[in-house]
Design a protein around this nucleic acid. Sequence first.
DNA 1: GTGATAAACTTGAGTGCGCAACCACTGTAG
DNA 2: CTACAGTGGTTGCGCACTCAAGTTTATCAC
Lengths: 159, 159
Amino acid sequence: MSTSTDDQTAALDAWVRLLRGHAALVRDLNAELLHDHALTINDYEALLLLAHADGGQMRRTDLAQSLQLTPSGVTRLLDGLERAGYVCKASCDSDGRVTYAVLTETGREKLDSASASHVAGIEALFAQRYTREELESLAELLGRLPDAVGGPSCRAPER
Amino acid sequence: MSTSTDDQTAALDAWVRLLRGHAALVRDLNAELLHDHALTINDYEALLLLAHADGGQMRRTDLAQSLQLTPSGVTRLLDGLERAGYVCKASCDSDGRVTYAVLTETGREKLDSASASHVAGIEALFAQRYTREELESLAELLGRLPDAVGGPSCRAPER
DNA sequence: GTGATAAACTTGAGTGCGCAACCACTGTAG
DNA sequence: CTACAGTGGTTGCGCACTCAAGTTTATCAC
């Protein structure tokens, strides 16, 4: 603990790089996705999660947790996706409180068509810039962060 | 989707981790800073940049570039900081278009008091979780990203 | 049963920010 | 001196999101 401000400096530096680089990156990819397919990144991620989920449906709470959004954020997000016809609601017969978000056929098609360019965009940013090993170590390093934040919420991020 | 290589999967995976982990992290630190000192992360970073700048002042454009914000974002940001008395405006006598943001004494004190807990928070997240070497390699890896965005060939250079 | 507590979800108000459009000033060209 | 392109900066509008408060359904205590 009493050690060096160097560690602090390194941490701050890494953090600032992360913050700025990531902010610009997200904005960039988001703008691209938005202009090409009228989807935000979270729209896209939501569709992706649903597509991978069993039966193409998820509880809104689980979606919120996976997307790192509050329940109200998910409500508005799905609101837009419903209006666009990409998802629809379904209720649970064993629990009247929960509502499922269900991926529609239209939604799946939309995801497929958006995937091509979005993945290509990510590829362009990441794969061209890092080697395979670097990518893995980056993923590993960054993978440690969420645990810190949400606490013990390692509930079923299996997938 | 296409056949695809594992590389794409790896890129996507790294990206998703980055996205989610970082989003949660930013929200977390932001909330902390906000509740403890009534500053957003960008408020803090702006004060920090000004404190490091020569004469404690910067042109708004340069601030925008450093913070990865649009000019309008900087206007609102500084609007708040001015209202709080942490910065004030100054005009340039050699160029009537530019306005400087100048850190006030109050602002410098605010930054100092906020720094303690904020740096501690970052320390808690980063330095405890990574070794010195990992931190450096993380910083290096992430440092390559911004170049991609603002960079040479990609796109949307105009605007 | 009745009541208290909790979970899933929605709604209203407010915030941070980008985009597009705009004004103000500068420097160069005719 | 006028014209005009380029840059610095602000404003109107809209979007995505959070927080706080409310509604409905489930569950547990008695």
